[in-house]
Design a protein around this nucleic acid. Structure first.
Lengths: 138, 138
DNA sequence: ATCTTTGCAAAAGTTTTGCATATCC
DNA sequence: GGATATGCAAAACTTTTGCAAAGAT
């Protein structure tokens, strides 16, 4: 993924460019899998020593509300966050718990049309995750 | 869905047929959408007045471990459970939060083959959820 | 008789809220 | 200056654990 232009992103969404927020977005733009709140807190604390978890949670809320981030849950009992850039799915290894982003050619638009017609349900987005055993664990 | 033969199910899995467990499975077999722990606790308490939440959580753990139930998370910050019968997906309304089961013709086996080959990731199962606006809310 | 299940209390893990202070534009 | 962001403490919410008592085969 190309480096994120945090400045532009934040201005467009009427958010202030605070140091923590920029770094949080930078971390997410470099990751190839969704992050949870604690992971972000720990990484950010290397630079912002006494950063509070509340701040992280609030940033995640705000950025999700502004549609810069997307929330997903993978059955772990906690939320994960990723940049709402290109659409992709996840491979979650049941053994090592590693998560990997993948892109599929099939964008499920046929299925979404069927759902719209048959159930009169207007699809905004979908979430598709694959659970199994990764190459390292098999 | 045809009524669940709880007796057979439990015997096959070497679980005792306790009243609470049978009723929990009965509730899930009648539902057309996945349940969370509190919903089950409240329903079960109508019959078992002082049923403890720990019991429900433990049943859910056990039945999931025995592969009678499947856990899903839909971005609500809590787990939901459903019988592991026929494979299906969910429509989640962003307004009224209603959840509906749907069956699709496409079982994504083509995508799973691609993932197996390209990433050497052995898919065990997948989870596909559609988020949008239901007919009542649009 | 033995193994499983349950209740109760306590704790753990994740996320949210209130309020005072600090920071950004 | 006025709106937004942050730190801290406390609480809310979901889920888990330890242990003793009760129940099932």
């Amino acid at each position: 993924m190309e480096p994120l232009d945090t400045m532009v992103l934040l201005k467009n969404k009427q958010l202030k460019k605070t140091a923590v927020r920029s770094d949080l977005l930078a971390i997410l733009s470099e990751k190839k899998a969704p992050c949870d709140a604690m992971e972000l807190l720990i990484k950010l604390r290397k630079k912002y020593g006494r950063l509070n978890k509340t701040t992280v949670y609030r940033q995640l809320q705000t950025l999700t509300y502004k549609k810069i981030l997307k929330t997903i849950e993978l059955g772990e009992g906690k939320k994960r966050y990723e940049l709402k850039t290109d659409h992709h799915h996840h491979l979650i290894c049941r053994k090592c718990k590693n998560i990997k982003d993948v892109r599929l050619k099939n964008d499920l638009s046929r299925e979404e049309s069927i759902i719209t017609e048959k159930y009169r349900f207007r699809v905004i987005e979908h979430s598709l995750e694959f659970f199994g055993i990764c190459r390292n664990c098999s």
